[in-house]
Every structure is written in structure tokens, then in C-alpha cells.
Amino acid sequence: MKIAVTSKGKDMSAEVDSRFGRCSYFVIVDVDTEDYRAVENQNAFVSGGAGVGSAQFIVEQGVKAVVTGHVGPKALKTLEAAGVEVYTGASGTIKNALEQYKSGKLKAVSEATVSQHFGLNNKKGGSF
């Protein structure tokens, strides 16, 4: 099963990007084999609808779950429609986040954890 982790860099030691729609990279990991690849997020700098664009991209990758810091309403609506689970509250490296996901420490959300435009005002990610 493949999951996507929002990332600031291209490998497992990179830091989790707390933003979904405007994260720098998606690290797409096969949970069973831990094989991964990083894809640059083409929606990181679009003027609007970054969450929707990123969500559609993720769905097209055949990913079953997203692991991130926060998610906004439009991205969540899109991911939910495609049956992709969204886990928020991930932090540390991508490897840490994968462990947090596997050990069940992250919670699947059904409501947006931030309002729209969150990623625009929190370019460094992290705290509110």
C-alpha cells in the first residue's frame, strides 16, 4: 500500500512539510517495502486552489493515505471523495512520520485542521 508524506526535501531524512497543498515535495512510500520516490509539488506556488490540485495529483498516484501536518477544507473534500485517508499531526523526518503512521500514533481526520489559505501564511510550516 502506498502513502504520501508531505515533505520539505526529497528523501527519508527530510523534514515533514506541515502544509498539504503547498508542500515542497510529496514522498510516496510503499508501506510494506519502504521503497519510496519523491515528487516535486507542481501546485506549491499556484495562485489559488493549491489544495485541490495537490489532492487530485495524490489521487492520481494511487495513494491510499496522506500523512501531513495540517489539511484544509477543499483538499480534504477532494481526498475524501476519492477515499484517500488523511492523517495529520505528523512531524520530524519522513522516516519518523512513517513510523508514527505505522504505529497508529496519527489520527485520521474527517474535518479540516486548518482553514483555507493556511499554507500561504505559514511558509515555514510548523506552529500556528
Binding site: 501546485n43 499556484v46 495562485s47 489559488g48 486552489g49 493549491a50 485541490v52 490540485g53 489532492a55 487530485q56 489521487v59 477532494t78 481526498l79 471523495a81 476519492a82 477515499g83
Partner: peptide, 10 residues
């Protein structure tokens, strides 16, 4: 503008 999106059958 990412104003319309198609996922699965929606």
C-alpha cells in the same frame, strides 16, 4: 484555477 476536479466517480 483548480475550481473543478474529478476524483473516482465524482
Amino acid at each position: 484555477f483548480n475550481a473543478i476536479t474529478v476524483v473516482s466517480k465524482e
